[in-house]
Simulated assay, not measured.
Amino acid sequence: MAPRVALLAGGAVVLLLAAVAARASNDEGDALYALRARLSDPNRALRSWNPNVVNPCTWLHVTCDHANRVVRLDLGNSNFSGSIGPELGRLVNLQYLELYMNNLGGEIPKELGNLKNLISLDLYDNKLTGSIPKSLSKLNSLRFMRLNNNKLAGSIPRELAKLSNLRIIDLSNNDLCGTIPVDGPFSTFPLRSFENNSRLNGPELQGLVPYDFGC
């Protein structure tokens, strides 16, 4: 009887894991379809994003890992317009978010700070407005942040200096103001990463309280 009990128990575990994976796929699919609803898609790049398909891993431009969790979203240079929306914050396994070179407007959702596994955030060459969310400082795995060539305003959040794994940042060609942080990874970033922000006043001075000139 013991082998049979062990076999039944093993089967139950497999079924439980499958159910958990299915729920995760459904939630991720719902989040992605909510993004699709926000976008104008003249080139029909998202034609395969069918809400009746349980697993979004079969959709174009979506990459999943071995457990059918969405880890990459490749939607760069696709002629999208619309907004990003907070739903993407539910893709907690996402590692690469590629939305560059579109016509996306609106603000960067603060919910993107929930993407704790994110390695690359590429939103450059859009029409994004508002400020850079302080919540992005929670992305401890982040190595690449490219927000250049948008219409972002406000100061650079000093909380971003906590991102010890950040290797590349590009905030150029926006409307940022104040001063550039100098702590943490910011001590290594070249000034060209911040150029063409007419109200940005260069690096803040060591030992002085940061002052946001013109913000």
Rank of each mutant, 00 (worst) to 15 (best):
L152D: 03
A21G: 08
R4V: 13
D212G: 05
Y124C: 00
S81M: 07
N55V: 05
G89T: 01
R36Q: 15
E107I: 14
G11I: 01
D74S: 15
S187Y: 03
C64I: 12
R38I: 07
E195D: 13
V54R: 14
F144N: 13
R72V: 07
N174S: 11
L118E: 05
L32I: 04
A21P: 01
L7E: 14
L15I: 06
I108K: 01
D27H: 13
F194S: 05
D30E: 15
Q95R: 15
L139G: 04
A31H: 02
N201F: 08
G207Q: 07
L32Q: 03
L35N: 02
P109N: 08
G214H: 02
D183N: 12
D212A: 13
G29H: 06
L17W: 10
F144L: 15
A6M: 04
D183W: 00
I132M: 01
L152R: 03
L205I: 11
I156S: 01
I108A: 06
H66D: 14
G85M: 09
L97V: 01
I156E: 02
G106A: 08
D175I: 06
S131E: 12
L118Q: 05
L104F: 05
N52G: 12
L176H: 05
N79Y: 11
L60C: 02
S198D: 13
D74R: 15
I169T: 12
P203A: 07
P190V: 11
L46K: 05
V53E: 10
N52S: 15
A153D: 06
K127A: 08
N79Q: 15
V5N: 05
N103F: 08
D212L: 09
L46D: 04
T63R: 15
G82K: 08
T179R: 09
S193A: 15
A24C: 10
L94W: 04
A45M: 10
P133I: 03
L73H: 06
V5L: 14
G89S: 05
S48A: 13
D27I: 13
L88V: 04
R47T: 12
L147V: 07
P190G: 07
L123C: 00
D212Q: 14
L94H: 07
A22E: 13
E107W: 09
S120H: 10
F189K: 05
V54N: 10
D41M: 02
N173L: 10
P56F: 08
L118W: 03
L128N: 01
L200F: 08
N55P: 10
D122N: 10
M1D: 11
A18T: 07
A31Y: 03
E28R: 04
C64F: 09
N93A: 14
G106F: 04
T58Q: 14
F194E: 04
L75Y: 04
K110F: 12
G202W: 05
N197G: 11
R158K: 11
L152H: 05
S187M: 12
L205R: 14
R36L: 13
G207I: 07
I132Q: 00
F144G: 03
N196R: 15
R47G: 10
P133M: 07
E111W: 00
P157H: 04
D122T: 02
R69Y: 04
G214L: 03
T188W: 06
P51F: 06
N173S: 13
V71L: 08
G106D: 08
D65S: 11
D175C: 09
P157V: 03
K138V: 00
L121G: 00
L7V: 03
L136M: 06
L97S: 00
V182T: 15
